[in-house]
Design a protein around this nucleic acid. Structure first.
Lengths: 205, 205
DNA sequence: CTGAATCTCAACCTTTTGGACGATGCCGAC
DNA sequence: GTCGGCATCGTCCAAAAGGTTGAGATTCAG
């Protein structure tokens, strides 16, 4: 029995590649979308078994938001994330949003096909090298930063000084320092550059 | 007359996609390579007119080094860079290494084909949105950092304190501070986080 | 040889950052 | 109503980072 698949990627070349590689006797590509919005519309009409979705989709909503929207459809397709990046926060975010699996783009085509069938069957499918990381990520979850703290962290990462951040957020420097102190405690670091580095590594920002 | 092309990309899916999209009556894909080393070996045997090369090639030498090696062949193929990223330093680096053009992966297939023919004809071919940036980059060149300064900058960007950097490089903190002062002057910034941000934005590190 | 660039280090000073308190007001959960 | 989390602000202090100046050693090109 063939599994129907909808491709979502903002690069035409990648879509062609996936179509060429996936369209076999067990997998049938029924559509392609370049954006998350388009993906949701198409999925609502085509009812694919599986949506194969990139995380980075250029402008518009990202892969995680797309996943959530797709999972809210009825019937909901299984969503398989296929992307180049392996930042922890994104993987966790995709899983939380209801993705059935997460694959890196450098895997062999057969692995993607296997993942599609597993996803269609209701299984979870994680690239082997990611599985351990994800489990550890769930055991050692990154502390949840508040929205305000994330704002400060993002500004910090652009090189803004406390004074700049204070001006941008219309608060005093004391408040910024307070937020930063909390951020440091939560991330278990003791300098802004380390915080920035950690945040970028884990995909927190 | 058909133009012969060698594809270089570490993602099998992208190679398939490019082959599917490019193999027309005017372009003939004569080979694929997953690494820079493989690309040079294949190019030496196949003498393609054009090598279409990603900048990020996973392990091994990167696209810029590959470009330089390819241009040293005789006869040298034209090298067209096709990549997802548009960091200034990488674009300039590729051009310096002898690339005939630089395209972003989100362009339409026809643009790639046009680029291939232009490159085969000896033209330069830059994605329009990049051309201006490159010209400006040549007018406003990023100051050249010395090897030592780059080392310090890289360590800084991982969150290392001056003390850590000093230990890692086996010099005193005074030396590190001296290097950092030079870096700041050259980059025209006044804090390490700004330096890190600028360096990451421009692809300096 | 001379000069320029680079790497190394030091002393001195100012500013920024970070740590450690505490305090207020707000809001939502229990 | 009370409690906890959050955002806001403050003070005091120590440490780190940044700015300035100068200087010895090396290397490399002209």
């Amino acid at each position: 029995m063939t599994t129907t698949v909808l491709l979502v990627d903002d690069h035409p070349v990648v879509r062609s590649g996936l179509r060429a590689v996936l369209d076999t006797d067990t997998v049938h590509v029924v559509g392609e979308a370049a954006t998350g919005e388009e993906a949701v519309t198409l999925a609502a009409h085509l009812h694919p078994d599986v949506v194969l979705c990139d995380l980075r989709l250029g402008a518009g909503i990202d892969g995680i938001q797309t996943t959530a929207a797709l999972r809210a459809l009825d019937p909901a397709p299984a969503v398989l994330i296929l992307t180049t990046f392996d930042r922890d926060a994104e993987i966790l975010g995709a899983i939380e949003a209801g993705a059935a699996g997460y694959l890196l783009k450098d895997v062999a085509p057969e692995v993607i096909i296997e993942g599609i069938h597993r996803a269609a069957g209701g299984d979870m499918f994680l690239a082997p090298d990611l599985a351990g990381r994800v489990l550890q990520g769930m055991r050692n979850p990154l502390p949840r930063l508040t929205e305000r703290e994330l704002e400060v962290l993002r500004l910090m990462s652009t090189g803004a000084a406390n004074k700049d951040i204070a001006r941008t957020l219309f608060v005093t420097e004391a408040t910024v320092k307070s937020h930063i102190a909390h951020i440091f405690t939560k991330l278990d670091v003791d300098s802004r550059s380390r915080a920035i580095h950690l945040a970028q590594e884990t995909g927190l920002i």
